[in-house]
């Protein structure tokens, strides 16, 4: 299963400080996975194997834990991760229209990434900003009281900013 092609291998040395701190602390698997995802942007297969080896576990168990939680990704994500809230308040206030606008403009389905690798789109559970519903987060920034037009404006602005670089 492990990819032997050197070009696709992850730089495992980046994970050393994390493993040095947590590998022997019992109950730290989720913390290690969270740090790994911060480093690599997702959880590559070879990283999962490496974590299993260093924590004295099996790849199946590590992957079993990782797939249980929605936070963990197994594919690289775009530069901008759009997290559209579909909690109750956002749902009642029309988040499905916002989702449709994103899909139509970016040509990307829930869980997908645009071809240029700029945007990933994910519909998520409540972000806890219910009073501003419908809400989305793009990376660390939260945008509230969305309308389809407002979403397009935000996305176009990011595209333009990136194109100018």
């Amino acid at each position: 299963m492990q990819c032997q092609c050197a070009a696709n291998r992850s730089d495992l040395s980046l994970l050393e400080p994390v493993l040095a701190e947590y590998a022997d602390v019992k109950g730290s698997l989720i913390t290690i996975l969270q740090h790994a995802q911060e480093i690599y942007g997702y959880l590559p297969t070879d990283v999962i194997y490496h974590i299993a080896e260093k924590t004295g576990s099996t790849p199946a168990r590590v992957l079993g834990v990782a797939t249980f939680y929605t936070q963990f990704r197994f594919q690289p994500v775009g530069k901008y991760l759009i997290m559209l809230c579909d909690g109750t308040a956002c749902h009642v206030n029309g988040s499905s229209r916002i989702a449709a606008a994103v899909r139509e403009y970016l040509h990307v389905e829930n869980g997908g990434t645009t071809e240029d690798g700029l945007f990933s789109f994910s519909i998520v559970a409540c972000l806890g900003c219910c009073s501003l519903s419908p809400v989305m987060m793009i990376n660390e920034d939260t945008y509230g009281s969305l309308t389809p037009a407002k979403v397009l404006e935000i996305l176009k602005e990011i595209r333009a900013k990136e194109a100018a670089k």
């Binding site: 579909d86 909690g87 109750t88 308040a89 749902h91 559970a125 409540c126 806890g128 900003c129 219910c130």
Partner: peptide, 11 residues
């Protein structure tokens, strides 16, 4: 772990 969609008092 306030997971209930529509509640944000803990946050």
């Amino acid at each position: 772990d306030e997971g209930d969609p529509g509640a944000f008092m803990d946050r």
